[in-house]
Write a protein that binds this DNA or RNA. Structure first.
Length: 435
RNA sequence: GCCGUCGUAGCUCAAUUGGCAGAGCACUCGGCUGUUAACCGAGCGGUUGACGGUUCAAAUCCGUCCGACGGCGCCA
């Protein structure tokens, strides 16, 4: 009965494609109701959930008794006739004529009462939930959209080592890794290697994990996150803004196009905002941002980095994501190029959205060796460790720029998630490294 | 790193504020041929996070530690 490969997706049954026909399905018991001589199962596969009914009268008695005792999440194959029936959830059901237990489940640890902690402890099982399935589907679309965008723009994919000897963002904490008799670190960024590669390979991008050993207890930080980074030759700050805006808009279009149902399940209220989103995004300078915040009554002064309250206030002033440019050099990384018009500021930007904060951070790169050494020393770094990086400025350097985008933050923004950990299957946070 | 909340059955939570540790769900058994998180009846289920202290008596009060969650800071 089940050797003929005639299995259909449950979604097809729910679309009415098999009504009146005999089909087989295979999936997991989502719920079971036993009213004695009749059993009702909600059967789930990766495409949907449908009700299966099993009546004792027209079923093998031994099989009926076996199936009667099945627990939630048991895997099963069912063969039967599809019927349209308004009594069934979803409007369709399969009336079983035969069934085969693939694996009888133990008592499943997740039931209707679920705490955040319990679901995180059982993330390996919670991935079976509709919510996580939808989120992982959207995530897959986002990754695909990033590759598609950069390749379409003529960028090559380039990989850098995960194990690295140096920091990238001064001050950020690194995860040390034993490397035989030496010590190296898990990478925080692909950027420094990218800057070495562009002179030969040309415009490049990557999607790779980055690691931060900061004990950031917030809804927007992971210690291991996926980072889309890009580095392009001859780009100025305006080019880089366009490249960032283009990527974000492409991701939004792609998710609306390919994962609309999933997005609707997860964030129906946000659909309209995303559907109406188009460029250009507003652009303001750091100085203007400070003025706006002061006007709004906030206690900030020029030179302060924005905290959560400032970020919240600022993003709430715009209908779209907002580019904030020309930060003071003191609050930005050593590799950012100073603005020739005002050397106290750097040519770079943060792209900020409400609720999530910074989606993208990017800059034109400083190409002057002396300036780089000065900035490294100001941050208390030892420039000698960066010799290989400084070499990229000694041999025919050219203007270039790049940015990094936090992929889980983008997903958090698209899906209006309360916490970034739901944007990744197995989140790594300061308090959680398993499962 | 700082501030706060919490930790009781497999899960979600009670325990009249110091006086016999309980309920719902799950699970097991029994009943039921149209259920919708089915329902009805019974049963199983505990070192109250750990250690110490106060007390005739501690889940409850005090101390230390552990863990989780929430917020701030740091950052993407």
């Amino acid at each position: 009965m089940f050797d003929d490969d005639s299995f259909v997706d449950i979604s097809e049954i729910l679309e009415g494609q098999h009504t009146g026909k005999e089909v087989s399905i295979r999936g997991w018991v989502h719920r079971e109701r036993d009213i004695g001589n009749m059993l009702f199962f909600n059967i789930r596969d990766p495409t949907g959930t449908v009700q299966a009914t099993i009546a004792k009268d027209n079923f093998n008695e031994d099989k009926f008794d076996n199936i009667k005792g099945l627990l939630v999440e048991s895997s099963i194959k069912i063969h039967g006739e599809v019927a349209e029936d308004e009594r069934a959830p979803g409007g369709y059901e399969i009336r079983a004529m035969d069934a085969e237990i693939v694996h009888a489940s133990d008592d499943f640890p997740i039931h209707e009462d679920q705490s955040v902690e319990h679901l995180l402890d059982n993330r390996h099982l919670w991935l079976r939930s509709t919510k996580m399935r939808d989120l992982m589907t959207i995530r897959s679309t986002v990754f695909g959209a990033i590759h598609e965008f950069f390749r379409k723009e003529g960028y090559k994919e380039f990989q850098s080592p995960i194990l690295t000897p140096v920091a990238c963002e001064g001050g950020s904490t690194l995860f040390p890794v034993e490397y035989f008799d030496d010590e190296v670190y898990l990478t925080q960024s692909w950027q420094l290697y990218a800057e070495a590669a562009i002179y030969g390979v040309g415009d490049i991008y990557t999607i790779a994990p980055s690691f931060r050993a900061e004990k950031s207890r917030t809804p927007r930080h992971l210690t291991e996150y996926w980072h889309a980074e890009v580095e392009g030759l001859w780009l100025d700050n305006d080019d880089l803004i366009e490249l960032g805006e283009g990527l974000v808009l492409h991701i939004v279009d792609k998710v609306l196009d390919e994962s609309f149902e999933e997005l609707k399940n997860i964030n129906e209220e946000g659909l309209e905002y995303l559907q109406n989103l188009e460029g250009p995004f507003p652009r303001i300078t750091y100085e203007e941002a400070v003025e706006k915040l002061k006007d709004a009554g906030m206690d900030v002064s020029y030179g302060d980095d924005f905290g959560v309250p400032e970020e919240k206030k600022l993003t709430s002033m715009f209908e779209k994501p907002v580019f904030v440019t020309h930060y003071p050099k003191e609050i930005k990384a050593f590799y950012m190029k100073r603005d020739d018009d005002d050397p106290s500021k750097v040519l770079g930007y943060d792209l900020m959205v409400p609720h999530v904060g910074e989606l993208i951070g990017g800059s034109v790169r400083e190409t002057d060796v002396d300036s780089l050494v000065d900035r490294l020393e100001e941050e208390g770094e030892d420039p000698s460790i960066y010799e290989w990086f400084l070499d990229t400025r000694r041999y025919g350097s050219v203007p270039h720029a790049g940015y990094g985008l936090g992929i889980e933050r983008v997903i958090m923004w698209l899906c209006n998630l309360d916490h970034i950990r739901d944007a990744i299957a197995f989140p790594r946070t300061p308090n959680r490294s398993r499962p």
